[in-house]
Design a protein around this nucleic acid. Structure first.
Lengths: 123, 123
DNA sequence: TAAAGATTAAGAATTATTCTTAATCCTGAG
DNA sequence: CTCAGGATTAAGAATAATTCTTAATCTTTA
């Protein structure tokens, strides 16, 4: 556990949970000005492989890093791109029943429009 | 419909369905040697936005381009990375019931080990 | 039939990620 | 102790993935 890795992990754990590598880098720089973006990517990869954090791939968007590795799903706002957590119970079983092969896991992104982006009714 | 776009679309439609931009570029070059990789990406983006094809994001893997835009799910082999189509019926309804917000769509990647990669029992 | 505007491809530029190498950190023999 | 040898790591270089810019091509219509 180097100070670079510690800083990166702290930033993720204190975050809302779905930062990009670039955002993490910017924050880490305040603490360790000499840290390199490559170090951030390398540690994110290592931590992902080790199961300490989770990587989320979203079309048209850089990968996000999730502070929680508990199984859960994501809501992705189609307007602003913000990622929210959500929990769909019984999904693993539902999917396993229909898949016809043994499922070792899954990634699910639900598309929606978040409240901030929903057009408001002006009186 | 330029000859570049035509070539790209033909390659995708004739493919197994989940090529990377790089793979598409390599094939397109045989037909149009002067085509640029940027042109491939630009047209893939346009076609995706137009709903002619579908973009698939997978962690640790470049985006894939799916020849089918019909709603369906993907099986991703955790060993070789190959992407297969699958159909989970009733999933939209299942998800909508539990999500608590209006779902406009979703991307689901099921993780598994494909037959080619499954360890065989040698006698 | 050719000028004006729209569209597009090529290649340049940028962004995202991985690789290389020199530096740091252990470990244990002397 | 202490320093050589090996393991690990960070920084920065390199590469891969994607987007942007600009000059060229295509349309339209006057």
């Amino acid at each position: 556990m180097t100070k670079q890795k510690q800083a990166i992990l702290n930033i993720i754990k204190k975050s809302d949970g779905h930062m990009t590598a670039e955002e993490i880098y910017m924050k880490a720089k305040k603490e360790l000005p000499s840290i390199a973006i490559g170090t951030v990517y390398r540690n994110l990869g290592l931590m992902t492989d080790a199961g300490e954090i989770r990587r989320i791939a979203i079309p048209n968007s850089p990968d996000r890093y999730d502070k929680s590795t508990k199984p859960h799903e994501h809501l992705v706002c189609q307007k602003c791109g913000t990622v929210y957590d959500t929990f769909v119970t019984g999904l693993k079983e539902f999917l396993q029943q229909q898949a016809g092969v043994e499922i070792t896991g899954y990634d699910l992104n639900l598309k929606f429009i978040c409240d901030k982006c929903k057009p408001k009714n002006h009186i």
